[in-house]
């Protein structure tokens, strides 16, 4: 764990709450999922929570972000209300995409999420457009392209880097590198280090994506760079995917070993909070309990919400 003391207690607790919300939501989904109450493929974010939490604490509602298929973590961190996400997973009209999107397509106009896409790569270009639009409209906001290591295989990633640099677009490229594209290890899908090459186009920052303080610090620098220069920056966060690509089973790939203590961003951060006396064991427990109550409420809300009317499909 990086030893940094500059963090304010309320920010530390906010990041913890974000990470725990993402984790505890996933842990709720796991036993419920086989009951088919959520009829939609889920790409869980267990192990990767620090990337979303450490980034989004620096973002505002006016900063726009179009996500990929792995939406839950970054969407919650950016501000999507828990109950509208859960209702969307339940396919109810009260969901964030009114039951049309499912897990991979979330929308929250209020919190700067104008959508998400499950066709890998394309959202990067869209996010460059978000940044350019912010600039042209005189907004202080920035665009954020949030994508995985697999997306760097796509031509649109490289085209977007070039465009953003050429046209000085205020956009942050955030690569959440879990070392895997489905079951393919990074070494089999990407020949070069995309962060190194991105350095030819824009300032590059690197963070340990299992250490929320590392992400917090580097994302702070990267976001400040984009805001101040009104041009692009790139942040590469290496992290680990604990679950299978999709669904609720633990990953079993021999080349993706997980240490539930050392690789856990939450264990590591809580240990830090206790050691530096930013929080007491009682306070940590209270955060977890509070989130359990939020989850109770969100799931009850989803279950009580109506399904859309199939007759409305008729054209």
């Amino acid at each position: 764990m990086t030893e940094r003391t500059g963090i304010r207690p309320e920010q530390a607790m906010k990041m913890l709450r974000t990470m725990r919300t993402i984790r505890q939501l996933s842990e709720r989904i796991i036993p419920l999922y086989p009951k088919d109450v959520m009829e939609t493929p889920v790409h869980l974010c267990i192990g990767q929570e620090a990337v979303s939490a450490g980034l989004c604490i620096h973002l505002r509602d006016e900063d726009l972000m179009v996500l990929g298929h792995r939406t839950h973590g970054p969407a919650l961190a950016k501000g999507l209300p828990l109950k509208s996400l859960v209702a969307e997973l339940y396919g109810r009209t009260t969901g964030c995409s009114h039951a049309r999107g499912g897990s991979m397509h979330v929308y929250d106009g209020e919190h700067g999420i104008p959508g998400s896409s499950a066709i890998v790569g394309g959202n990067i270009a869209v996010s460059v457009g978000l940044g350019l639009g912010r600039k042209l409209l005189g907004s202080e906001g920035i665009g954020v392209a949030y994508f995985g290591d697999g997306a760097t295989d796509a031509g649109v990633f490289w085209e977007s880097l070039n465009f953003a640099a050429l046209k000085e677009v205020p956009v942050l490229f955030l690569c959440e590198d879990n070392g895997l594209s489905n079951v393919m290890p990074k070494s089999e899908h990407m020949f070069a280090d995309p962060a190194r090459i991105a350095g030819e186009f824009m300032p590059v920052y690197r963070a340990d994506g299992t250490d929320v303080l590392s992400v917090y610090e580097e994302a702070g620098r990267a976001v400040a760079q984009v805001r101040e220069s009104r041009g692009p920056a790139y942040l590469h966060c290496t992290t680990k995917r604990w679950m299978q690509h999709q669904g609720v089973l633990e990953d079993d790939l021999p080349y993706n070993p997980i240490d539930p203590e050392k690789d856990c961003p939450i264990v590591r951060f809580e240990e830090f909070l206790l050691r530096t006396r930013l929080a007491t064991p009682g306070e940590l427990a209270a955060v977890g309990e509070e989130i359990e109550r939020d989850l109770d409420e969100a799931f009850a809300f989803a279950e009580a919400s109506p399904y859309p009317d199939p007759e409305a499909m008729e054209v």
Partner: peptide, 16 residues
Amino acid sequence: FPDRSMPASGPLERRF
């Protein structure tokens, strides 16, 4: 199909 995109929610998807 109707002249729209496939919806995600079960009842709509089954109707589509």
